[in-house]
Write a protein that binds this DNA or RNA. Structure first.
Lengths: 244, 244
DNA sequence: CGGGGACTTGATACTGTTCAATTTCCGTGG
DNA sequence: CCACGGAAATTGAACAGTATCAAGTCCCCG
């Protein structure tokens, strides 16, 4: 009942759910582990194009992506839309809804996906009893804030080439962490969605990708990308051209 | 010891600290109220230009602004900077630091200011005991995420005029909530800081403000602004020009 | 195999940037 | 109190980077 569970065990216990984000750094006793397991026991499948939630919907749960790929977007009343993020396995989604008890954006599956639903009231209960879980939840919320600030930096002070290079490197890094190739992967989103996320038009995305290919930085055919030179790509996310 | 404290009382107890953000919606008993009072007992004064914290500094506390005005900014290694927000009395600052235990941005006073320091470990302790405080903390973190998404929308899909109109209306609304005039106020920040925040150059900020003035929307002289037509200003934050 | 959406590419238009010259404002010291 | 000097702001003109519009190709799904 009270014997501690090693991190590695916990990793196994939660790995079926791919909940790195929520579980890994938390050390638990057996009984608490059961509670946590129960907390994340609700699993759902979504097909490409399905909404995980819609803007305005009542907030009840966070969602941990087990497998698959999502985008989140906010809609302006005049019809403009802004993609606010692309989420992949192991990431937590839905945190924007806590503040007003209703979702502030749409979440849409970009490929067939599986998701764990985490009822927020129960997560709060449990995190009151488990300081390490509490701290971890706070870290996850804070990480989202930091991520958003990074995107503000990108949107506010980078040019198209830099934005796209940063975007590709970000995907590369996230695939790498999950055990996939950092240099060769499949874009799950359209040029238009990339453009919306990066604050540029789909034509500019396409042109810039073509340009990267022309100078040998990447190879791209449709949605398959190969990053030929991560280091040089990194230099694109740097100083403005004339100040080098 | 256990008698509940009415919301109005709590409002009084905390109003000296201007901590609307942290305190108001929380109902407490007398003993807990003392703890909360103690939690926010550390107060500091800052002069214009002072750093509240610097990027990279070890994280220990959140800060509640009692009076004054701050900006937060992230610095890119190549020297570019992005202002990520302007904070005024009653707002909480420093939440980006939770994720990595070190601050991810700089916070700088734009005028002489007073701040309550809130040791985060103790805030977590207390919020474990007080569900309503816990929920409120989560709301504050989430609100920051929603706010950032709004800025992403602004940076990613609005033109200069729209951004500036949205910015002025946002300030107007926040001043209004605090009991100041929504139509006449003083800009605490430079054109360059506005520009950094909105993703445009200071010259463009200046030109756009001049243009707003030329068409009678606003009156501006240096840092004093007067919004002559809130409704019309709102229409600027709307559809792209040709789609009206 | 047909059709529609996604993508690429080109030509042109336009928004916002860059560079530069003044002017205004404001804090400091005479 | 006023004069000075540097920062902030305004304004103009030329330029650059993206957007827009348009045509055509490719790909995937049914």
């Amino acid at each position: 009942m009270q014997k501690p569970v090693a991190l590695t065990q916990l990793r196994v216990a939660c790995s079926g759910c791919n909940l790195r984000e929520l579980c890994l750094p938390v050390k638990l006793t057996g009984a608490d582990l059961e509670l946590l397991d129960e907390l994340i026991s609700l699993k759902h499948a979504y097909q490409r194009g399905d909404y995980l939630y819609r803007s305005g919907a009542r907030f009840q749960s966070l969602y941990a992506i087990r497998t698959g790929f999502f985008k989140t977007q906010v809609l302006h009343e005049d019809g403009r839309e802004q993609v606010t993020g692309f989420q992949m396995a192991g990431e937590i989604i839905g945190m924007d809804a806590i503040s007003s008890d209703s979702h502030a954006c749409d979440a849409i599956a970009l490929e067939d996906s599986e998701v764990c639903e985490i009822p927020f009231v129960r997560l709060e209960e449990l995190s009151r009893r488990l300081p390490s879980l509490q701290r971890h939840l706070h870290r996850i919320l804070s990480r989202e804030i930091v991520r958003d600030q990074g995107i503000m930096l990108l949107l506010g002070s980078m040019r198209a080439e830099e934005r796209l290079a940063a975007f590709l490197l970000n995907l590369s890094q996230r695939f790498s962490v999950r055990g996939y190739s950092p240099t060769s992967f499949h874009l799950r989103m359209t040029r238009q969605e990339i453009g919306s996320y990066l604050g540029m038009k789909l034509e500019t995305v396409s042109r810039t990708l073509s340009h990267f290919q022309a100078i040998g930085l990447i190879s791209i055919r449709n949605k398959s990308v190969e990053l030929n030179d991560l280091v040089k790509l990194q230099t694109f996310v740097g100083p403005p051209p004339q100040l080098l």
